[in-house]
């Protein structure tokens, strides 16, 4: 009965199952098993041998838990498969379920349906473009998947162009497919990215941090210089300011932001604002 003490008993390798609620925000390692809130109660009482009799034994409170990246279902528990910090988001209905995931600092991108990414066109073949998005295989992009494109009116896309688009098909068994229009047929900011500007790569964790709602870094950067910026969930950032010098400064700041504390960042921004 390894699950009897879900709270603190942290064994050397963490092989004892801990309650998911108690390790939120902490580092979890592959191989660890996590208990869901519902099991905490039932298993906790059940050790003594006598489980409290339930009137509605057949219908235990159904709770809906979604396993995000880095977690898998293992029986009625969660198995951690990646190293990182455990995160949780309540479900809309406010029950004890919700989404659990592991926030890891990895560099390799794995396509996910619905993600907005920056890709580089690597080949044109017939009616599709091959786009490199940093995943294990290039994504395909139909020439009809642009705003206003028809069979006669082809979009002007060359090999080497940068594309900002969204995945409509992305799973482990199929070739990923991108589009540059939303469900209404509008570009909505997507499409070919302009000629100049600078593209650079950062870790996936930093991109998620920057794209979080009310991210301070972006607001501060926006006050510094007028700029155009595009974030791809695949760890690519495209930035363009008035001059090349400003573009480079912005790229360096964003790259350095990952390992800076708020105070350090404020200092640097203050110094830049002066100059």
């Amino acid at each position: 009965m390894a699950e009897t003490l879900p709270v603190a008993s942290e064994s050397p390798a963490g092989c004892k199952a801990r309650a998911a609620r108690n390790v939120l925000g902490q580092v979890v390692l592959p191989g660890e098993e996590l208990l869901l809130p519902e099991q905490e109660e039932t298993d906790g009482v059940g050790v003594a041998g006598e489980r409290p009799l339930r009137l509605n034994a057949g219908m235990r409170s159904r709770l809906r838990v979604v396993c995000g990246p880095g977690l898998r279902r293992c029986g009625d528990r969660l198995l951690v498969t990646k190293c990182g910090r455990l995160r949780h988001k309540e479900s809309g209905s406010g029950s004890s379920g919700g989404i659990y995931w592991v926030d890891s600092q990895q560099k390799r991108y794995v396509p996910v349906k619905g993600d907005h990414v920056i890709g580089i066109v690597t080949a044109k073949s017939g009616d599709i473009f091959k786009v490199d998005v940093g995943g294990s295989e290039p994504a395909s992009l139909s020439y009809l998947a642009f705003e206003g494109a028809t069979k006669r009116n082809r979009p002007n896309v060359q090999v080497g162009d940068l594309i900002y688009g969204q995945f409509v098909v992305a799973n482990k068994d199929m070739e990923p497919e991108m589009v540059c229009i939303d469900s209404c047929g509008r570009a909505n900011g997507m499409g070919v990215i302009g000629q100049d500007g600078l593209l650079f790569k950062v870790t996936l964790g930093l991109i998620r941090k920057l794209l979080a709602p009310d991210c301070e870094i972006i607001q501060e950067v926006g006050k510094l210089y007028p700029l155009e910026i595009v974030f791809g969930m695949n760890g690519r950032i495209w930035v363009k300011a008035k001059t090349i010098q400003q573009t480079l400064i912005l790229a360096n700041i964003l790259e350095a932001c990952e390992h800076m504390t708020t105070e350090q960042r404020k200092q640097i921004f203050a110094r830049l604002a002066e100059s």
Binding site: A13, L29, P30, G31, G70, R72, L79, T81, K82, C83, G84, S104, Q105, Q106, K107, R108
Partner: peptide
């Protein structure tokens, strides 16, 4: 492997 974020059953 852990650093690369490869999914693993255990360490």
């Amino acid at each position: 492997l852990v650093d690369a974020g490869i999914p693993m059953r255990a360490l």
